[in-house]
Amino acid sequence: MTMFSSRNWREYPQRYRLEASKFKKSGKTYFPPRAVDPETGDTAQEMVKLPDTGKIVTYTVIRTAPSQWTEIAPYALAIAELTDGTRLMAQVVDCDVNAVKIGMEIRIEFRRIQSESDHGVLSYGYKFVPKWY
């Protein structure tokens, strides 16, 4: 089951540009963006762009992948903490699954996420790659 292109279109700001919401009262940043701060109920916020590097906090290896990702399986799915402290989840690519480690430095790259079969819309977004430079 692939993601609807309409949903993907609505999520371009976060998927393409890593735009997050930073709430005025708590100073906390949420990604994906939220309308309301769950801790304070605050709605006053500003858009911030997340940094593009961080470290893997935890991960799992997907060997039996959903149909849209069989061509890249096996792959790791990781939660990384970026340099500003924000955490997000993404696939780890350009990396042998046996080389993925907690604490491994990553960089965020713009990649193709999935395709609605051979004739449908292509979805793009962020993935993690090893940070080697």
Partner: peptide, 16 residues
């Protein structure tokens, strides 16, 4: 190019 890399993704990274 791996399966998730195409002209658009290469272009975005080069532009950055």
């Amino acid at each position: 190019p791996p399966p998730d890399m195409d002209t658009i993704t290469l272009a975005v990274e080069a532009a950055k």
